[in-house]
């Protein structure tokens, strides 16, 4: 099996995700971009698992999904709280963590 198309796709997805995190101000969009990056990684894991014919990569992909789900729970809660108090979902507005 030729992994190249899958890896290229994963790379494209990862680049899109990272560009989204770096460029978009909306916390929800940035969050979705993070998910995109995670899924790009998942795709790479699964591809390599297929290529090598074992299931280690697929197991890791499951772990990533579970952790992503947990992360979404915590992350969304934080975003909602910030939105409630500041009436804004922009990540640049929440920049108080500095001297």
């Amino acid at each position: 099996m030729n992994p190249t198309p899958y890896i290229v796709l994963a790379t494209i997805l990862f680049s899109l995700g990272s560009a989204g995190v770096l460029l978009r101000r909306n916390a929800l969009i940035a969050f979705m971009s993070v998910e995109l990056m995670l899924n790009a990684a998942n795709l790479a894991f699964v591809t390599f698992a297929r290529m090598h014919g074992n299931i280690d990569g697929q197991i890791v992909a499951f772990f990533v999904m579970v952790i992503a789900a947990a992360e979404v729970v915590v992350g969304l809660a934080i975003i909602v709280m910030i939105f409630r108090t500041r009436r804004s979902a922009s990540v640049d507005d929440a920049s108080l963590l500095k001297l």
Partner: peptide, 8 residues
Amino acid sequence: RWQTGFVR
């Protein structure tokens, strides 16, 4: 100064 507080 590196700690800008900006997530991005």
